[in-house]
């Protein structure tokens, strides 16, 4: 964290990139992307907008679980190829 402190202090929104370089930080940025894709997709698909929050929430969780599963499978494949 010490190394990222100066960059964080110098951050000007839109003029500087978000100081989220650590591998423990940037993957969390994929969550709003999944949520936005789910909301827009379900807003288009659902006949009634009342269904959207529930349907979009379910789709968001499905996307995240699918990506996590894909990451695990790929990690196993990479480890297998490394041996």
């Amino acid at each position: 964290m010490y190394f990222h402190l100066p960059a964080s202090l110098a951050f000007t929104p839109f003029l500087d990139p978000l100081p989220a370089w650590p591998d423990t930080v940037w993957p969390w940025l994929l969550l709003p992307l999944c949520l936005a894709v789910s909301i827009v997709y379900k807003s288009i698909r659902c006949k009634s907008m009342r269904q959207v929050p529930r349907e979009a929430g379910g789709l968001t969780i499905t996307i995240i679980l699918a990506m996590a599963a894909a990451a695990v499978v790929l990690a196993v494949v990479v480890r297998g190829l490394e041996r």
């Binding site: 929104p13 839109f14 003029l15 500087d16 990139p17 978000l18 989220a20 940025l29 709003p32 992307l33 936005a36 909301i39 827009v40 807003s43 288009i44 907008m49 959207v52």
Partner: peptide, 26 residues
């Protein structure tokens, strides 16, 4: 209108968030 506000707000927020993450020069 409900669909318009939901879709419009979500898309614009996603675009602005992209510019906030990568900076305008992205």
């Amino acid at each position: 209108y409900a669909r318009a506000i939901t879709i419009g707000t979500t898309i614009l927020l996603l675009f602005v968030l992209g510019l906030l993450i990568g900076g305008i020069r992205a």
